[in-house]
């Protein structure tokens, strides 16, 4: 475990010293600030819009962070030949993947936490109460973010960074569609489309902005189930990524 955690901390320091993360964080903060202005323009005198758009912003932020943080890590390591001495001697491929993943996940956690706190501050500045489920909802979005991070790592082992981003975004969109909607993309291949959709993740389990914005309580057991589901899918994607990585020759 020591090599993995050391490598995760190396990754964390590496990502923080590069500028990508700061760019994404600034975009999220600007988006939150913009959302905070909505009631001021008289669209609503309630906090519903702030919560709804704020959580939506965090959801998109999780996606952007995953792509921005992880899409380029492996290709850069390979291109700059920093991968070779690491894999040749101190690290196994599994340790490399887990170290990079945990490092990127730590940065993502910090950024999402900052986003959640930012949303709370905006609610307070507008004289609104902070719903009790807001923090658990943000945690679910963080689990979604980790899952997306695993997806980006998986794609990064067999595609280029310019292809990784659209593929991840496509998966993000398709994974929120109901089966009926997914089938309507290709109605002639109904059976195939049904099976394909049911194999894709159900990312709607992570999205609870609607009940929170409308003040509907969420049972605690649901948070637990959705978190376990997200972590299991993340583990599945990481195992797939490692299987691809292990099959690769490092020329």
């Amino acid at each position: 475990m020591r090599p993995v955690m050391t490598f995760a901390l190396m990754t964390l320091r590496n990502l923080l010293r590069r500028r990508t993360i700061w760019g994404i964080s600034i975009v999220i903060l600007i988006a939150l600030f913009g959302i905070g202005q909505i009631p001021g323009y008289g669209i609503s005198n309630e906090g519903r819009f702030i919560l709804d758009f704020g959580l939506f912003g965090l959801e998109i932020g999780a996606l952007l962070l995953a792509i921005g943080l992880a899409a380029n890590i492996y290709p850069r390591d390979k291109e700059q030949k920093t991968l070779m001495p690491l894999i040749a001697v101190p690290l196994s491929r599994g340790q490399y993947l887990m170290g990079r993943f945990i490092g990127a996940a730590m940065v993502q956690t910090a950024a999402m936490l900052a986003g959640c706190i930012g949303l709370m501050v905006i609610l307070l500045m507008n004289g609104l109460n902070i719903p009790g489920d807001l923090f658990p909802a943000a945690c679910l979005l963080l689990v979604e973010g980790w899952f997306l991070l695993a997806v980006v790592f998986f794609f990064s082992f067999w595609t280029s960074p310019p292809l990784n981003a659209p593929l991840t975004i496509l998966l993000f969109i398709l994974s929120q569609m109901p089966v009926s909607g997914f089938i309507s993309i290709l109605p002639r291949a109904q059976g195939f489309m049904r099976i394909l959709r049911l194999l894709l993740p159900h990312m709607d389990v992570f999205h609870i902005k609607d009940p929170i914005a409308h003040g509907v309580g969420i049972p605690a057991v649901y948070f637990l189930l959705a978190t376990l589901y997200g972590l299991a899918y993340m583990a599945f994607m990481l195992s797939m990524a490692l299987a691809v990585f292990r099959s690769r020759d490092l020329k």
Partner: peptide, 27 residues
């Protein structure tokens, strides 16, 4: 939505177990 449809929660557990099993097998 899943949070409101309790009847699918057991299926979430089923998927979780299958995914962990698949991850272990692939690994």
């Amino acid at each position: 939505q899943p949070w409101a449809a309790r009847f699918i929660w057991s299926k979430m557990i089923r998927d979780t177990v299958i995914l962990i099993f698949l991850a272990a097998v692939i690994l």
